[in-house]
């Protein structure tokens, strides 16, 4: 799942694949903007057929947190 999400993220940021680790943060490290994040979430919702509440994003800072969040809902 981590690899899958990382592939989706790489559509939005120009970073070397190996630089994205479970601890990488969306805002501070990857410099993703809010629209990139929202669109990425929309893409992940379709991918995994789940709903990710916008409010829940307030508690998701790192790759690992996102992976955990999605795994919980599968």
């Amino acid at each position: 799942m981590f690899d899958k999400i990382r592939d989706v993220i790489l559509e939005y940021v120009e970073l070397p694949k190996e630089s994205i680790t479970p601890d990488t943060r969306f805002l501070a490290d990857m410099h993703m903007n809010s629209l990139d994040i929202m669109t990425m979430i929309g893409q992940l919702e379709d991918e995994y057929d789940i709903t990710i509440e916008t409010e829940d994003l307030n508690n998701i800072y790192t790759m690992q947190q996102l992976v955990d969040y999605i795994e919980e809902r599968l």
Binding site: T39, I41, G42, Q43, T54
Partner: peptide
């Protein structure tokens, strides 16, 4: 009505 679905 949802930014998440803009591109779709």
């Amino acid at each position: 009505n949802d930014l998440k679905r803009m591109l779709q």
